[in-house]
C-alpha cells in the first residue's frame, strides 16, 4: 500500500467517523424536540399512511408538480438513486477486486449518469432566476461534492487504480454531510413518516 493509499484510507475513515458522529448528533437533537402526538380518535390508518408516503405518495404520475417538472423530477430521482447506490458501493470498495467486471461497468455507467445529472443541477439552479436568488453557497458546494463523489465513483468502478481518489472525495463528502444541506437525507425519512402518520390517521390518504 502506497503512502497515497494510506492517506486515502485515513481520509475516508475520518470522514466516516465525522459522518456517524454528526448523524448521531442530528438524531439526538431531533429526538429531543417535542412531538405533538395525535390524540384524537383515529379515522383512517397511520400505518397505511406511512406505506403510502413511501410508495404512491412518491409516484411521479400522482403529482401534478412532477408532470410539470418531469425532467427535473427524473433528474432528481436518478441522481439520488445513484448517490444511494454510490454509498453502498463505497462500503463495498475494500472488496472491489472481487466484484465482477460487468457489474462494475454497470455501476460505472450509473455513477457516470449520476455525475452528469449533478452537473445538470448546476445548470437548473443557475438558469432559473428564482432558484438562483434563493441558492446559498452551501447549495452549490453540496452539489459539487456529490457530483465529484459520483464522478470519482464512476472512474474507480471502471479503473480500480483510481479507488484512493474516490476514497478521499468520499471522506470529504461524508465529513461535510452532517453540517450542510446534505443532511436533508435524514430528515427525508422523518418528513415522510410524519406525513403518513398525520394524514393517514385522518383518512386523507385513503
Amino acid at each position: 500500500m502506497s503512502t497515497f493509499d494510506m492517506v486515502a484510507v485515513g481520509v475516508v475513515l475520518a470522514g466516516a467517523f465525522v459522518f456517524i458522529a454528526g448523524l448521531i448528533a442530528i438524531l439526538v437533537t431531533a429526538q429531543r424536540r417535542p412531538y405533538g402526538t395525535e390524540l384524537a380518535p383515529i379515522k383512517g390508518s397511520p400505518s397505511r399512511g406511512v406505506l403510502w408516503a413511501f410508495t404512491l405518495g412518491l409516484a411521479p404520475w400522482a403529482k401534478e408538480s412532477a408532470r410539470i417538472h418531469w425532467l427535473a423530477y427524473i433528474r432528481g430521482a436518478i441522481f439520488h438513486i445513484a448517490i444511494f447506490v454510490g454509498a453502498a458501493y463505497l462500503i463495498a470498495t475494500p472488496w472491489l477486486a472481487q466484484i465482477p467486471e460487468p457489474l462494475r461497468l454497470v455501476l460505472a455507467v450509473l455513477f457516470g449518469i449520476g455525475a452528469l445529472l449533478g452537473l445538470a443541477g448546476f445548470w437548473i439552479r443557475l438558469a432559473d432566476p428564482i432558484m438562483r436568488f434563493l441558492s446559498t453557497p452551501d447549495d452549490y458546494f453540496a452539489l459539487a461534492l456529490t457530483t465529484l463523489f459520483l464522478a470519482s465513483a464512476a472512474i474507480s468502478a471502471y479503473t480500480i487504480e483510481y479507488l484512493p481518489a474516490f476514497w478521499i472525495i468520499s471522506g470529504i463528502t461524508l465529513a461535510y454531510a452532517p453540517f450542510g444541506k446534505l443532511r436533508h437525507f435524514i430528515y427525508f425519512f422523518y418528513v415522510r413518516v410524519f406525513l403518513g402518520l398525520t394524514f393517514g390517521r385522518r383518512s386523507v390518504l385513503e
Binding site: A30, Y73, G76, D128, D139, H184, Y187, F188
Partner: peptide, 13 residues
C-alpha cells in the same frame, strides 16, 4: 424541524 431541514430548494413545488 424536519420541514425546515428537508427542503433542497429544487423548485418543483
Amino acid at each position: 424541524l424536519a420541514a425546515l431541514e428537508v427542503c433542497v430548494r429544487c423548485g418543483i413545488c
